[in-house]
Design a protein around this nucleic acid. Structure first.
Lengths: 371, 371
DNA sequence: GCCCCGAATTATAACGTTTCAATTCATCAG
DNA sequence: CTGATGAATTGAAACGTTATAATTCGGGGC
């Protein structure tokens, strides 16, 4: 693979003689070059032009060479790569974005109400971890409760603000999923939907968690189980409910889902429901809790009712934070690794952006007992 | 203020006749226009050109008009604004960024190790809350423990990735502050420094918190106080230490700072230190805790040693999450409102970006007792 | 020797914006 | 009537990139 036209240096020499047919545009550009050369010596931000001038190749060639385009001679690519590195060239994101339409940004829709403790931190850390080194950056867009969930998505689509989207708290027929599929913007949801067309998702096997929790409580001789469930509109709640109810039914134990409570956030309501249920003569002796706050509320309600967790009733809880190592009495917990979830979602999104089909792209994390 | 040159419509009519001196560039542009008109009827992204054609003004005028430039006639501005709205024009961020160098992005340096529970969520929610409606978006860049803290800052500066920076866990002579001041990039730190040159910051009055905590414990008759302090390299830890030590000294009670522990994250170490200290004959009877995890660890260590929080020793803790409402026995807590902190930091950063001098820009949140 | 192929490179336009430096034109002073 | 004034507008360049359509030129086939 010998360069036919001669090396960059030769080409440069030739160019310096200035070809006869100097077109207007070219002239003006050359004029400007001289102007640029006049400026102070050191700190100009290196651009493609800088590298082009240093190597003697044209801007176009340099651009292609840096993209490892096979149409550029291997030797040229090497020379350009070396020069770019030496000069500290870094492609300008704005220019590239303007030209290509790709933003090099992925956006996370962040619920701004109460979180499952530690969720946001771990999740975001996982995402940034995976994105490190790729040119992508994460932007966070609020998914405010009470606001239409589609508005941020619409804004992102209209203004072309991201190459891909991540979001949580997925609903069974999540309108965001529908809109994104129609628009063709890559995305990964935390949680499944019930649309027939497949889309990428990462989920925790909440059904399995609920089943395990029931099994564990039954093992410990508990036979009146209760579960506090967030709003049913989220898919994961339906999985929890299904796992809980069917496992309890199979085990032949009494069970109930505490109704009338919505999300982890409506603390007052949950407290009332808990207190009421603990005062019933046939009160539950086993609780399945979905988040740490719910679990702590259950413990507090028991304590306030003069009962001791582990004696009159057992609790199994899902957790995403480390606090349960320090809660006394100890209760059994299952850890959902949200850092790994964030990593996996970012990974999938990158693949999807790279054009991989949606079909195979999903992960279901199995619960591993801990604590 | 009458338009001298005639309304947009007249100008448009005139332009359609095509002036004699049609320069090359113009011709080619017109050609392209026709090509564009040929395409399918509806969904072209509206750009300045679209608005210009619709109103009959030039792109330059439209651009100025939308920026409310006083050199553009008031009537023209109104016409253009109306048309832009009607057509759904939204300025292209990439183009604007390329042209102006401003990114419309602010970046949050996010520590990716363990958080004070709920910190990230609340903080980010506050930031996005303030930024809503302004054109700014937030990107999150990891500040990985063990990595050089300057690397992300350097990257942001070199690649011009943001118009401003927010970060936490500020050190007394934080190298990031120095670098950013030198580079002239607006930023707001969560926490103060000891540099002589002023810079914008938002902080919680940790010294006051520590003093209040000591006072509260002394009120309750406690006279051997202990505090677990994260790494001294952070400014806020020094404030905590100073407040704790001087208040205890003034009250004339015994006190110690548990040494040898670094951050909230080194749980094993903290546990050991706690257990050891609780087994001493002259063990502390009052604890000041900075985070919920530390507080819970203290409670757990007491329980494990056969002691009951509130009986043999009291605990006062700072918290950023709602969990302490549900911890039994109840302990006294002081709430640091991180949502408000995020809001305030975003607010200041916006002002700073707008050119406001750094001098007056700081807020110190006073602790309010709660729970 | 001529023509054409194709490998290697290059000129140029374009992405959508902002802004400098004109240009236009009514008005007013002289 | 002329020239200066200044308000209103505009042409064109520029930001740094990529993609399309040339251009160059050695070599192989005839």
């Amino acid at each position: 693979m010998q360069a036919r036209r001669g090396t960059g240096i030769e080409t440069f020499a030739k160019r310096c003689k200035m070809t006869p047919d100097a077109i207007q545009g070219r002239t003006s550009r050359m004029t400007r070059d001289i102007g640029t050369d006049h400026t102070h010596g050191g700190a100009e931000k290196p651009t493609l032009r800088t590298v082009a001038q240093a190597t003697g190749f044209s801007v176009a060639t340099v651009s292609r060479a840096l993209a490892d385009d096979p149409r550029i001679a291997a030797r040229t690519r090497a020379i350009v790569a070396e020069a770019a590195k030496r000069l500290g060239y870094i492609p300008d994101r704005a220019a590239r974005r303007l030209r290509t339409g790709r933003t090099q940004v992925i956006t996370l829709l962040l619920n701004t109400e109460h979180e499952f403790l530690g969720f946001t931190h771990e999740f975001l850390s996982g995402i940034t971890e995976r994105l490190r080194g790729t040119g992508y950056s994460v932007t966070v867009v609020p998914d405010d409760p009470g606001e239409d969930r589609l508005t941020p998505v619409r804004t992102i689509l209209r203004n072309n603000l991201a190459d891909g989207l991540l979001f949580t708290r997925t609903e069974c027929f999540d309108p965001r999923v529908r809109m994104l599929m129609e628009a063709g913007l890559p995305f990964v949801s935390h949680g499944r939907t019930e649309f027939t067309m497949p889309h990428p998702y990462v989920d925790f096997d909440n059904e399995a968690f609920a089943r395990q929790a029931v099994a564990r409580l039954v093992e410990q001789g508990r036979d009146r189980l209760s579960m506090i469930l967030p709003d049913d509109k989220f898919t994961f709640c339906q999985h929890l409910r299904y796992g809980f109810v069917s496992a309890a039914r199979e085990a032949g134990v009494a069970h109930e889902v505490l109704e009338g409570v919505t999300l982890d956030s409506d603390r007052e309501e949950i407290s009332c429901a808990l207190n009421a249920c603990l005062r019933r003569p046939e009160r539950p002796n086993g609780f399945v809790c979905v988040g740490e706050v719910t679990a702590l509320m259950t413990m507090a309600a028991m304590t306030d009712a003069g009962l001791t967790p582990g004696i009159e009733a057992d609790i199994v809880a899902k957790r995403a934070s480390p606090i349960f190592d320090n809660i006394r009495p100890r209760i059994e917990t299952v850890y959902e690794d949200l850092r790994a979830t964030g990593r996996a979602m970012a990974e999938m999104l990158l693949r999807r952006i790279d054009g991989e089909p949606a079909e195979g792209l999903h992960v279901l994390f199995e619960p591993g007992r801990c604590g």
